[in-house]
């Protein structure tokens, strides 16, 4: 437990949760990563949260768009946070 990057190795081949910039979140099985937090996820699901302004009521409506990606490379510079827990 000496280094944060070493700790991520414990999550290899396991389900992880990633918070990305632009209100995106990913879950999936971690197959690879490097020191830049570039990663490859298997059976990933992306949740993209956006706000729409209702033209009539002017209220803010939060929408969540989900999509699945069987195998995806994620560039590390978009990553904010990683967790091994997917329950939240």
């Amino acid at each position: 437990m000496m280094e944060p990057l070493e700790m991520i190795k414990d999550s290899l081949n396991k389900q992880i949760y990633i918070k990305l910039r632009n209100d995106r979140e990913l879950t999936g099985k971690l197959n690879a990563f490097d020191q830049h937090l570039n990663m490859i996820l298997e059976n990933a699901e992306e949740t993209h949260t956006s706000v729409e302004l209702d033209e009539e009521t002017y209220e803010q409506v939060y929408k969540q768009n989900k999509r699945s990606m069987p195998m995806v490379f994620i560039r590390g510079d978009g990553v904010i946070l990683l967790s091994s827990h997917t329950d939240h």
Partner: peptide, 19 residues
């Protein structure tokens, strides 16, 4: 941001070991 990859083009074990 992302590169979507062909799932069958990946040797997952190799990736784990390399990581």
């Amino acid at each position: 941001r992302y590169v979507q990859l062909p799932p069958e083009g990946v040797d997952v074990e190799l990736l784990h070991d390399a990581t």
